[in-house]
Structures are given as C-alpha cells and as structure tokens.
C-alpha cells in the first residue's frame, strides 16, 4: 500500500501525465457507460445520411444515415479492448521469450532472438495485414494479429533487462543458495525487470489502437463491429463535403493515443530508478 502511495506521489509530479490519465479515464468511462446512456445501435440507419451535427444527432450521421455518436461510443469499446488485450498478450509472450533468452543465453538465446529479429524485419503493419488476410477477419484474429506483431519489442527489452540482472550479485547469491532457475526468474529477477516493461506495454496500447484503426480503415477488420478506424474509412469518400465525418473519429483516436502516451511517460518518470533520487 505504501508502495502504491509512493508511486502515486512520484507520478503526480508530472502534470501532463496526470492530465493524460484524466482524459484516459474519461474515454474508458465513455466506452463503458456510453452505450447504456445512449442506447442506439450504431448499425441502424435512423436518419438522413451525411447530416452535420445537430440537436437530434449530436455528432451527425454517416453516409448511410447511422448515428455517429453511437458509432464513436461503441467504437471506443472495440478500440480499447483490442488495444489492451493485444498489448497484454504481446507483453506476456514478450516476457516469456525475453526472460528465457536473457536468462539462459547461449543457443536458446540465439534461437529466440533470431526469431524475434525475423518478426522485427517485416514492417509490422504489413505483417498484421497478412495475418488478418489469411485468417477470417474477426475481432479475435485482429487482436491476435496485433499481438503477434507487437511482442518482439517487448521480448528484446525483457532480454536486455534479464541479461543485466542475471550478472547481478543478488542472483549469484540465490544460485549459491541452490534456488531453482524458475524461482530466480519469476520471483527474483522479474520484479526488477518489470518497470520498463510496464512503460513499454502501456505505450503499446496506443500503437495497437492505431494498428486496429488502420486495419479497419482498410476494411480488414471485423465487419460486424464498429470501430474508429472503420468510421474514418466510411467518411473518407465524402471527406470534401462532410469533413467532420472523418475528423470526429480521427480526433478521438488522436486524443486517446496522446493520453496513453502521456500516461506512459508518467509511468516512466515514476518507475525509472534514475529519476528516483530527486
């Protein structure tokens, strides 16, 4: 409990990060309660197409006459869930691969890191498109595809942390006591390697949201759910006459990604041991 308190005190010092956190909380709250407060099916064509924002349709309607606000709120759920789940999955895979490679080194390390390099050499967005194109485009495959292109950076970071920690004397002391490798990895090194990983993973949520938006903009995401990228894609053809149709989900993505990045920076400041001295 005191640890959390100290963490918050450090985090609080970064005003931008506190602002980012506030915005993020608002967006998450909107995603959770929004569709309940504004119970409109985002696929229902309930008005004239391409209306600008008005009292009836607060954010207007799209080219098929669907309520933009409903789309935005439902899209928030999709974007956030895909972003968070994909980042969590990528973090878990990255932790596993990085920890094993960094701790054991040698042949295992070579094998795992060359695999990681293979993923890193292919532009991740292209790889994500290929994966989604091969499998059927559902929310699950999109999430898996994003996770599949995101884990290598985590793996590299975790490996570097483990390699540095492995040579620390407290690890030697544990080995001299006869502690098993599994326990050394999980109980001793992992808590020390985690802070930078938390930062990277939190920033990865933003990247994942962008990737998901890109995929659905190209029409490669699940056609049965509304997402922000999909909405931009729909508005694209009428960009010159109804700019708000793309601009509204676009700005939403921008604000969300920015907020997550600010939070990530705040986490970095709060968790980075080099700044803790101050």
């Amino acid at each position: 409990m005191t640890g959390l308190l100290i963490f918050w005190r450090r985090y609080r010092r970064n005003a931008a990060a506190v602002g980012g956190l506030a915005v993020l909380v608002l967006i998450v709250a909107a995603a959770i309660v929004g569709p309940l407060v504004h119970p409109v099916d985002p696929f229902d064509m309930i008005g004239r197409p391409s209306q600008p924002p008005s009292a009836r349709f607060l954010l207007g309607t799209d080219v098929s006459g669907r309520d933009m606000l409903a789309g935005l709120l439902h899209g928030a759920r999709v974007s956030l869930v895909v972003g968070i789940v994909a980042s969590l999955a990528a973090t878990l895979v990255g932790l596993l691969v990085g920890a094993v490679a960094g701790f054991y080194g040698g042949f295992v390390d070579n094998l795992l890191m060359r695999t990681t390099d293979f993923f890193l050499t292919i532009p991740s967005f292209v790889l994500a498109i290929v994966i989604v194109a091969i499998f059927s485009p559902t929310i699950a495959t999109v999430t898996a595809a994003i996770a599949a292109v995101s884990w290598p950076s985590v793996a590299r970071l975790v490996r570097a942390e483990f390699m540095a920690q492995r040579e620390r004397e407290y690890v030697r002391a544990c080995r001299a006591l006869g502690m098993s490798n599994l326990e050394i990895i999980v109980r001793q090194i992992l808590p020390n390697a985690l802070p930078p990983v938390i930062v990277v993973s939190s920033l990865m949520v933003a990247t994942a949201i962008l990737t998901e938006s890109g995929l659905s903009f190209l029409g490669l995401s699940d056609p049965n759910v509304v997402s922000w990228g999909y909405m931009i894609g729909v508005g694209r053809s009428v960009l010159r006459v109804a700019w708000w149709m793309s601009a509204i989900p676009g700005v939403t993505i921008l604000v969300t990604v920015l907020a997550i990045n600010l939070v990530g920076e705040g986490l970095n400041d709060a968790l980075n041991p080099r700044l803790q001295r101050r």
Binding site: E169, Y170, A173, Q188, N192
Partner: peptide, 11 residues
Amino acid sequence: FQDPYASLNPR
C-alpha cells in the same frame, strides 16, 4: 559478496 548494494535483491 563485496558489494552489499548489489548482493541483496532491491525489491
């Protein structure tokens, strides 16, 4: 070990 700062797990 020599360095008691390094030989104890900080966490």
